[in-house]
Design a protein around this nucleic acid. Structure first.
Lengths: 222, 222
DNA sequence: AATAAAAGTAGACGCTGTCAACTCACAAGG
DNA sequence: CCTTGTGAGTTGACAGCGTCTACTTTTATT
């Protein structure tokens, strides 16, 4: 009866699926629910996506887009160290304010990632932003610097940021009874240790801004 | 009055569920499958566990047990730095050789973790092992040392280890086209940077054991 | 205008978690 | 002895899920 629109349905499905994940998590995402919200039959989404995994891959790809734009917001200054630190804070801020989407990107394994090249390309792009920021940094080297070693350091930074994000938003946080103050101090300490690891110095004047207050949307400008 | 508890079915359910997760991942665990394997009706497990989440929490708790024992295997020597590094390698080794169980512990949020105190206690215990190892370490301090700051450093180390483990076993690894050699070099670099961060020195002679060469298991479809 | 592809609908199948009602064994208490 | 209560196991049912198949409607191209 209700004959409807054109490929807007595809877009509407993605939008609704996005919402559902943001509200209830990826494990509660069902294509039938999406179809219901969009107002089409339970089979309509299958005309645009071969399977549930494919719609999920598309959503993950868009999350990476959003994430990369978020990380790239700040214009590089002449102080690469500050830039890197600001980026780290942005990273944590994003993970904190979009926990479900963050988990979707980094903790939700797809059956066969090779089947979703767009997703992989976007993920790669997000990582390359971090890597590029690292290029101009004067680092304490343990071996002759090269593009290879810069990649390794990028992986190290990323590991710490990702691990911190994951732990702070996992059940472990409640299991360890971490207060909000504990959390802020943990973040401060991790950044200090990262500075030590990379430059050998404690981080210079970076103010203790009230970032990571976990409620509001980020304000990237200071 | 009290009919005696014969927990053989309960134990068998846990064992089989353990196997299923190890083989196919937590998302493919179904209580009906467990019941089928054990050889009882599909409702029998519900006589021992109020819900699927409860059996899962029990399994997670046992995983933490196993994990803690694994981490605690090495006897402390008189070189705390070596001990810590060895523990880090053990951590990565476990995550690498039991990826599904590792994800189960750290990447699978339960609806309400407070409902499962045993799980939380075991998680806390696993963390305290790392913390204790850190106690005797001569660290480069950024502020007056205390039990509090030791906790913060433990969180830092744990973040890096956890982040590295997660990334290396995630889809990102394939998205970034990391070879096995890249992976080994990444681990080496992260440990070097961790040493710099904590002690200010590069790590002294630690053997390059062939840890982390395990093959990745194929992932099943959802 | 004819036609084929694209988009949407309807029904079915087997899977899932979970609720309800039933049987059965067995350990007290009288 | 018998009665009774309770934990364990059974069967049946229900709604929701992904997805396969078959059908109808819309749209675009020739």
């Amino acid at each position: 009866m209700t004959a409807r629109a054109r490929p807007e349905v595809r877009e509407a499905c993605l939008v609704e699926a996005f919402k559902i994940i943001e509200e209830t998590g990826v494990e509660n995402l069902s294509l039938r629910d999406v179809a219901r919200r969009v107002g089409v039959s339970h089979q309509a989404p299958y005309k645009h996506f071969p399977s549930r995994d494919h719609i999920l891959a598309e959503i993950v790809a868009r999350c990476f887009d959003e994430f990369a734009i978020f990380l790239d917001a700040r214009q590089p200054s002449d102080r690469p160290h500050d830039d890197l630190r600001a980026m780290g804070l942005l990273y944590l801020d994003y993970a904190q304010s979009h926990p479900l989407k963050y988990r979707l990107m980094f903790n939700t394994p797809l059956p066969d990632p090779r089947q979703h090249p767009r997703m992989m390309r976007n993920a790669h792009h997000a990582f390359s932003i971090l890597r590029n920021r690292l290029q101009g940094m004067p680092l304490r080297q343990t071996e002759p610097p090269s593009a290879k070693t810069a990649d390794l350091d990028a992986m190290f930074i990323w590991s710490t940021l990702h691990g911190l994000s994951s732990i702070l938003q996992s059940d472990m946080r409640t299991a360890l009874k971490m207060s909000d103050l504990d959390q802020r101090r943990t973040v401060q300490r991790c950044f200090a240790r990262l500075s030590l690891a990379l430059t050998g110095d404690e981080s210079p004047a970076i103010v203790k801004r009230p970032i990571l207050t976990s409620k509001r949307k980020p304000r990237s400008s200071s």
